[in-house]
């Protein structure tokens, strides 16, 4: 078969595996740098919030985690669309590699939301539109992971999971607006988590932490995808030679 030069050759797992291995340390390093800078700004330099006192500092974790949980789902849907359209094996693996991290981000967002809600509004859980949508997003993640785990054949699991992601991503705005409508209908006031005027240091602190979370998610996804690649390509020759040649880096 003539070896066509095209995008798919680069998306082949054999080429991507060492690439991912090489890139992971850099993402870890960058994530740590952003983390330190973000924490330094957010925790040490940022002033007290005139309304919420020192408790507001939880936003340096809560907001990045919420953004990441949303962003990762969209990235997974992107990979799903690529996988369904071009039938590339790697995109399905990327989506599966991102799912646990996305779910953890959603969980962290809910946890920190509760830890923030307790001192501010006196309740661990508040049926606020954003928190409720975050909870539903966590359900979507769990649904995706349950479906892909239930299907043994990797190709079908990627395609079915991909389709669920696309259906999910279409439904997210609908879910968000219906929850918002439901929230304003029953409660009237929508609690704005970051309404107070954001001092520049606060804003930068949050953005830096968001970058830290982003780099962290990429690093973890790359590490996990390498294991998935090994698992799925175990019958191909390059995996056999790699594994037999001592401990693969």
């Amino acid at each position: 078969m003539k070896d066509r030069f095209n995008l798919y050759r680069f998306a082949s797992p054999a080429v991507f595996y060492p690439l991912a291995g090489a890139m992971t340390p850099y993402f870890v390093a960058v994530s740590i740098v952003f983390g330190i800078a973000g924490l330094w700004l957010g925790m040490l330099v940022a002033p007290t919030d005139f309304q919420q006192g020192e408790g507001y500092r939880i936003i340096f974790i809560h907001v990045p985690a919420s953004w990441m949980s949303m962003f990762i789902y969209l990235v997974m849907a992107f990979w799903a669309a690529i996988g369904l359209a071009f039938n590339t094996r790697l995109s399905g693996m990327m989506a599966q590699a991102l799912a646990p991290t996305g779910a953890l981000m959603a969980f962290l967002s809910l946890l920190t939301g509760a830890l923030w809600g307790k001192p501010m509004w006196g309740a661990w859980w508040v049926w606020d539109a954003r928190l409720t949508s975050e909870l539903i997003l966590l359900f979507l993640y769990i649904g995706y992971m349950a479906l892909t785990a239930a299907i043994d054949d990797p190709r079908r699991s990627d395609k079915a999971g991909g389709l669920l992601l696309l259906v999910g991503v279409v439904n997210i705005p609908i879910i968000y607006f219906s929850v918002k409508w439901w929230n304003t209908l029953h409660q009237g006031s929508s609690i704005n988590l970051a309404k107070s005027s954001m001092a520049t240091t606060m804003l930068w602190g949050m953005l830096l932490m968001a970058m830290c979370f982003w780099m962290y998610s990429i690093a973890i996804a790359l590490m996990r995808v390498r294991t998935i690649i090994l698992e799925r390509e175990r019958h191909s020759d390059w995996v056999k030679t790699l594994l037999l040649a001592g401990d693969p880096k």
Binding site: T48, G53, E54, G55, R57, I58, I61, H62, A65, P100, T101, L104, F107, L108, L111, T112, L115, W116, K118, P119, Y216, I220, M223
Partner: peptide, 24 residues
Amino acid sequence: AMGGYGLYVWGSFGATALVMAIEP
């Protein structure tokens, strides 16, 4: 003390640190 919110602030940071340590 974190202005009296120590439990909540360090609780969430601790939980996040724990997650980001255990996952890798």
